[in-house]
């Protein structure tokens, strides 16, 4: 069984001191330890941004891809090798700006993977610009007069896209986030966790203190995770109180389970020698 020590890599961490990403890194590695998975049976996929460095900091299989394309890349891996535990990491700009088009589709296909979005509501690595989840009026270098557009609501969006596991975490509460990640990985189908992740350098608004004063846990208030209507209602809650935890969960066949030719076979292990195309050739004569 894997230990936290096993998961460490020799790479020097270059996140800013106090970055919210540390909480996600800690929660993810702790979740892997709790789940007792072998590290060579886990694949993480990341996009571009501060979150993308996860591939450098966790010693599991990894594909550090390009901006916005975590989900299709992970989809290709999951479908052809279901024995792997596939976890995608994306930033808010990565997933909700550049990659927004893939988000709904991965959810509606119910690809059997977990997506963890490092949602700091700002572009960090490019030195502070607005993103799809930046609050209205948020001033950045690209919006010096304040962000005009309304922020997207990823949790609500996941719910209306028929998400089968929709959750929100907070990187300031590692214990809670760890439990969410454990549940997400255990869930068969697409698991989505939007994680509030304070950017200590570029987001002056949504800070640790800001979240601390607002977040509360759905599971401590008797929320029924099987009630999509209620989940939707909860997803719209924003302001003085902001819910974290599992909004909704249901059992539903994943995309792969609807492919009779695949099911749980690792396509990577099927022989490709001597494939008999004669029946097709016959139909062409």
């Amino acid at each position: 069984m894997v230990t936290l020590e096993d998961l460490r890599t020799p790479k020097k961490n270059t996140w800013c001191p106090g970055c919210g990403n540390f909480g996600i890194l800690r929660a993810f590695t702790s979740a892997l330890v709790q789940l007792g998975v072998e590290k060579d049976q886990v694949v993480i996929v990341s996009g571009i941004g501060c979150h993308g460095k996860m591939v450098n900091y966790v010693d599991v299989n990894g594909f550090h891809g390009i901006h916005g394309r975590v989900l299709p890349l992970a989809t290709g891996i999951e479908l052809t090798k279901p024995s792997l535990t596939v976890v995608g990491f994306a930033g808010d700009a990565d997933c909700y700006d550049e990659g927004w088009g893939h988000f709904s589709h991965a959810i509606r296909r119910n690809i059997d993977m977990t997506l963890i979005v490092h949602d700091n509501m700002v572009l960090g690595l490019t030195t502070g610009q607005t993103t799809a989840t930046s609050q209205k009026g948020f001033k950045t270098k690209s919006t010096p007069h304040g962000s005009i557009a309304s922020p997207l609501n990823p949790v609500m969006h996941a719910l209306v896209s028929n998400g089968t596991f929709v959750a929100r975490g907070y990187s300031g509460d590692v214990k809670h986030l760890t439990s969410l990640i454990v549940e997400a990985i255990k869930h068969e189908g697409f698991s989505f966790i939007d994680v509030f992740q304070p950017c200590v350098t570029f987001n002056y608004l949504n800070t640790f203190d800001w979240y601390k004063a607002r977040v509360y846990k759905l599971q401590e208030e008797g929320h029924d995770v099987t009630d999509r209507q209620m989940a939707l209602k909860k997803s719209m809650e924003w302001g003085e109180r902001i819910p974290i935890g599992i909004f909704y969960q249901e059992e539903s066949p994943s995309y792969r389970e609807s492919l009779p030719q695949i099911k749980d076979i690792n396509l990577t292990e099927t022989s490709i020698e001597n494939i008999d195309i004669d029946p097709i050739l016959q139909s062409m004569t």
């Binding site: 594909f63 989900l71 299709p72 290709g76 479908l79 090798k81 088009g101 396509l267 990577t268 494939i275």
Partner: peptide, 29 residues
Amino acid sequence: ERDYGMIVIHAESEISAINMVAGASYAGV
């Protein structure tokens, strides 16, 4: 696809298609 144990997926865009294909190839097919 069903006769030849293959996955054929109509992606949401060509961007998705090439990335899915890269993922599948990385996985080993």
